[in-house]
């Protein structure tokens, strides 16, 4: 497109905007260069043969499988809680709402290790012991899911609240005038409209769960072939000086995370 035909005011405006956009592009490029540089350095650190060798180990393959399964379960569980809580926060008007709002952020602001410690202590209480008798959480796979869920759900709730905040309540009101109950209006009108937000919330929850380390280490342990997830594998391999294996696991994590998040984003764009 020609920029000279628009006359002086238009031309000046274009030049100023170009400077601004150039500045923004430079800041973005600097950040992206850091991220990509870090990934490229890791990817080229060891010869591919050594990486595949590390990935062939039974322990690592078990950890990959366990991490994928637990992250997916945690993400689904998080979404199951995030949708109703997000709706309540976005649409509900009640006393104590700011306190509830702040309380739901506790898992986000607590240091991850502290979350694990709190869970461990909770399951030492009489109530916790009672639950343990029905479903053993401490140092088990259930514990991994619970530790992932407690933090992932807090992020999913934020995403769902923002989603419902951006959706007008008007269509739901109209559905009521057309004869729908509130539950039916939410089910038929609001939830389908919140589909992209639900995908985003599930994606955020999955990513958080996939990379969760501290709470799992404290609450579920790091027993090989039992409660070892991929972030634990990285830590275990590093602690015994096996850098190749740590790098291999890290690359598996990067690849899986990018694949899942790209798929979720593509599904959201199609919706």
């Amino acid at each position: 497109m020609s920029t000279s035909a628009g006359g002086p005011p238009y031309g000046r405006r274009r030049r100023r905007l170009s400077g601004l956009w150039l500045g923004l592009a430079l800041v973005t490029a600097a950040y992206l260069a850091l991220v990509l540089g870090m990934l490229a350095a890791t990817a080229t650190h060891s010869p591919p043969g050594r990486l595949f060798e590390a990935l062939a180990s039974r322990e690592i393959r078990h950890a990959i499988q366990l991490t994928l399964i637990t992250s997916t379960l945690s993400a689904l569980l998080s979404l199951g809680f995030a949708v109703p809580i997000g709706y309540l926060l976005a649409r509900g008007e009640f006393r104590g709402k700011p306190i509830l709002d702040a309380a739901l952020d506790i898992p986000i602001v607590l240091p991850p290790m502290v979350v694990g410690l709190c869970l461990l202590i909770l399951f030492q209480t009489p109530l916790g012991q009672l639950i343990e008798r029905a479903v053993p959480f401490t140092y088990t796979v259930y514990g991994i899911v619970l530790a992932q869920f407690i933090i992932a759900a807090a992020f999913a709730i934020r995403t769902m609240r923002a989603t419902f905040d951006h959706l007008s309540p008007r269509p739901e009101d109209v559905a009521l005038t057309l004869g729908a109950s509130r539950a039916r209006a939410i089910w038929s009108v609001t939830l389908p409209a919140a589909y992209r937000g639900m995908l985003a919330a599930a994606g955020v929850a999955w990513a958080r769960s996939f990379g969760e380390f501290g709470p799992i280490l404290v609450f579920a342990g790091a027993t090989r072939m039992r409660t070892e997830v991929l972030p634990t594998s990285v830590w275990l391999e590093l602690s015994v000086g096996n850098l190749e294996a740590a790098v291999a696991v890290s690359l598996v994590m990067v690849t899986a995370a990018m694949l899942v998040l790209t798929t979720i984003r593509a599904a959201g764009e199609r919706a």
Partner: peptide, 13 residues
């Protein structure tokens, strides 16, 4: 029957 100002159509339907 109610027609709000913005129509308030059901976004996903």
């Amino acid at each position: 029957g109610y027609v709000p100002q913005d129509g308030a159509l059901f976004p996903a339907m």
